[in-house]
Design a protein around this nucleic acid. Structure first.
Length: 109
DNA sequence: CAGTTGACACCGA
DNA sequence: TTCGGTGCCAACT
């Protein structure tokens, strides 16, 4: 029952909220699922307003599995702490076994 | 209304 | 192989 009245941002929020516990995805994967593979940057932009949207932005990382958006979080290593809290190994802002915890919306959905 | 920005991704040196 | 620069697309100022 999705309304196409949703903007690109809202669509990103919807997908982000679908990310299962202990899993992560990439901006490009979400953009690809939305049909805007070249708009990966927009996905990150959308996450900027994720606060108050119940969107687990900490589960969204770049193609390299690197916590590039960590800086946008409240403090400093909050994003990394959240991921580790879900069982995801993160070392120096880099997700370990990225392929193992990777969740592709276009593939799972 | 027009210009700049940006939590990325890809290509080339 | 590592580093740098360019490209894309929609939102934000």
């Amino acid at each position: 029952m999705q309304q196409e009245t949703l903007n690109f941002f809202d669509k990103v929020y919807e997908v982000a909220k679908l990310i299962p516990y202990g899993k992560v995805t990439s901006y490009g994967a979400i953009a690809n699922y939305l049909g805007a593979a070249r708009s990966a940057r927009m996905v990150g932009y959308a996450m900027n307003g994720s606060v108050g949207k119940d969107v687990p932005a900490h589960r969204v990382v770049n193609r390299n599995g690197l916590l590039t958006g960590k800086q946008h979080f409240d403090g400093t290593n909050l994003m990394q702490q959240l991921l580790e809290n879900e069982g995801i190994k993160v070392i120096d802002n880099q997700i370990q076994d990225f392929e193992t915890v990777f969740w592709d919306p276009a593939k799972e959905l």
